[in-house]
Each structure stands twice: as structure tokens, then as C-alpha cells.
Amino acid sequence: MLSVVAGFQSPDGGSVLFDGNDITKMPEYKRAEFIGVVFQDPLSGTAKSLSIEENMAIAAKRGSKRWFRMGVTAKRRAFFKGHLEQLGLGLEKRLKTNAGLLSGGQRQSLTLLMAAMANPQILLLDEHTAALDPRTAGLVMGLTDKIIKDLGLTAMMVTHNMKQALDYGNRIIMMHEGSVILDIKGKEKEGLTIPDLLDMFEKVRGEGLVDDKLLLSK
């Protein structure tokens, strides 16, 4: 579903609406004007042979025309520094370091920062903490929450971690075999626990299985 929204894949049927406009056929790079994405693989969000500031310069121009202006100017550098300081990882002192030399957590944090640059309206998070160790994952998740709240973004996060979904989400959509089987929001979601979610999932899935078995056994 996330791939269809981001434009990586085209849907078998149906359409993708953004703000009332049909964007089903819009190429991925054009959607980037209002969509920021963070991938599961920390290596895929940044270009390894470009420096931190150069990566950020590419993100800063998302949605606008790229011509022959210098990518990194003194003004932009100061702006990048300010952004990087928020991370608290000391990256603001390593602007000229190639992204390939950073750790997975650092690269993912940088990707997150880049995805939130240039005023996106939607942030797509594709299991973006799944490939990180628990401590770094917590750090990146906290940062994600902060950025979303600070900028007032709409975010769609794919996760297999139910605790994450319950702690950070305000609407939970559960998918099973390509279709939505559960959609919980607002008051319904408050006070929900992991066992509750599991119960609901078993119930919905169980019914499906029973149907299949009945069909197959006859």
C-alpha cells in the first residue's frame, strides 16, 4: 500500500487520491513534491559517495527546478547545520563527510531529516526502524515523532511492531494478504493494548481461514 502511495508500484485497480486529485498515474519523482519517504534499508535513503551537506542540498531542492546554481551555499550550509543540530548526533561538525561513512542509525536519521525538508505534506515511513538495533530504533522513532509534531505532518508508517503502532499512531490500519482487515481510529483506539490487537486480528483472520477450509474440504 505504501509503495502504491509513493508511486514505486502502480496499483492493479483503484486509484490514489491526494487532496482530492487523482495521482494514480503521476510518476514517483513528481509525487516527491508533497511526499517524503524513509525506506527500511538505511542505505537507500542517502547517496553514499556524496557528503552529508550535498545529500541535504538534493533534498532541499525537492519539488523545485534544479539548474546551475551551486548546490551548497554558505546560507544553505548554515540552514543544514541548524537542522543537523536537532539530531544531537554531532553530524553538524561533519558536513563534508561522505554519507557512506555513517552508521545505519546516523544515515537513517539523516534520511528522516531530508524527507522532512522542503515542506512535504505526507511522510511515508516504510518500517524505517526495522533494520536498526533497539536503542537506535528508539532514538530514530523519538526523532520521527518530534519532526511530525513540530511540522504538523501527516505520516503513514508501516510497522510490524505493534507497540510502536499503539504508542505513536492515532489511526491503526491492519493489513492481511493485501487487504485492510482492521481500521481503528479516534476513541476506539485509546486504551487499546497489544493483546487486544492480537485478539482482533485472530478473530478477523480466523473467520477467513475457516471459510477457506470449508471451501477446500468439499
Partner: peptide, 18 residues
């Protein structure tokens, strides 16, 4: 920059609107 990044990581540059 966008050209260099295209040769480095096509997935990333597309996501950055290139």
C-alpha cells in the same frame, strides 16, 4: 549533484524528486 546521486542511488534521487 542530482546527476552524481543518480549514478549512486537511483531509489534515493527519485524519492527526492529528481
Amino acid at each position: 549533484l542530482a546527476l552524481r546521486a543518480t549514478g549512486d542511488n537511483m531509489k534515493m534521487v527519485k524519492a527526492q524528486g529528481v
